[in-house]
């Protein structure tokens, strides 16, 4: 893919404010889904000091150079690109593990994004949590921003803060991914619904990802769940990729037969959930 010059790709930053809402999982899976659609995709782990994207993708043993090596000129860009073992058009630039966020400047990130967009259709940047330097770096070269949140007070509050900062940076309004929604809890009135979150954040929705244990098992194995045709969360990530490609994909109804089945079992006294 390096040979084909200037693809004029899109730079999309995935961010959230709050940590632990699923930014890295989202980056890995949306990237894998886009790559599975034949797009040339590079994922950039911008969480310098807390490298994680390599783990989610199962590429942790292949790292030689990282993003700081690239921006400081210790290696060529292509040397730091780790090719995914399943999808040949998916690549990763890992974060440095032993440096901190000050090691990269917004200008350097902007330059890196410019270079990457010539070679790839999609440059997905996994932002660190927080609203400081790491976040500023992550959005410095972005064309678009996706905000990941969970249906929880603290996560939505932080997402709201991020929306304001993205707008202040004069980027287009970010699009929202509501991650880890539990349809059963929403139905009982014990979890904020997607509508509640949308009403509060007032930004366009691009994805709803159900809480799904296949994410846990896939992450344990280092395999993107987006490549599992039977996973509902995987389908949600494939839908997000399709929407990024401009396709009109209806949002999946959250009450799937699986949910009904679980509910019946619970009604009969089997299984429980806090």
């Amino acid at each position: 893919m390096e040979e084909q010059q200037d693809r004029n790709g899109r730079v999309i930053t995935i961010t959230s404010g709050k940590g632990g809402v699923g930014k890295t999982t989202t980056t890995a899976n949306v990237g894998a889904a886009l790559a599975a659609r034949g797009k040339a995709v590079v994922l950039v782990d911008a969480d310098i000091g807390l490298r994680n994207l390599d783990i989610v993708l199962g590429l942790e043993n292949r790292i030689v150079y990282d993003i700081v090596d690239v921006v400081e000129g210790r290696c060529r860009l292509r040397q730091a690109l780790i090719r995914d073992k399943r999808l040949t058009n998916l690549a990763l630039i890992p974060a440095a593990q032993t440096r901190d966020k000050e090691a990269v400047s917004p200008e350097q990130m902007r330059a890196l994004c410019q270079e990457l967009r010539q070679q790839f259709d999609f440059v997905l940047i996994d932002s660190p949590a927080g609203i400081e330097r790491g976040f500023r770096n992550a959005i410095a070269g972005a064309d678009e921003v996706l905000v990941v949140t969970n249906p929880e007070v603290s996560a939505v509050r932080d997402a709201d803060r991020i929306v304001g900062l993205v707008e202040a940076a004069e980027l287009p309004p970010p699009r929202l991914i509501v991650n880890r929604i539990d349809p059963e809890l929403v139905r009982r009135g014990d979890m904020l619904s997607v509508e509640d979150v949308l009403e509060i954040l007032a930004i366009p929705l691009i994805g709803v990802v159900p809480a799904d244990e296949t994410i846990v098992t896939a992450t344990n194995r280092g395999e993107p769940v987006a490549l599992d045709p039977h996973s509902r969360a995987g389908q949600a990530f494939r839908d997000i990729a399709a929407r990024l490609l401009g396709e009109e994909v209806p949002f999946q109804p959250l009450d799937t037969p699986d949910g009904v089945w679980r509910r019946m079992l619970r009604a009969l006294g089997f299984g429980s959930r806090a």
Binding site: V153, R157, R161, V186, G189, D190, M191, L192, I200
Partner: peptide, 20 residues
């Protein structure tokens, strides 16, 4: 009006965002 904890969450969220 489902009077579950989600309503409480929404109310708290709205209040905290007004303050923010």
């Amino acid at each position: 009006t489902p009077r579950g904890s989600a309503q409480i969450a929404k109310q708290r969220l709205v209040e905290v965002l007004v303050y923010d």
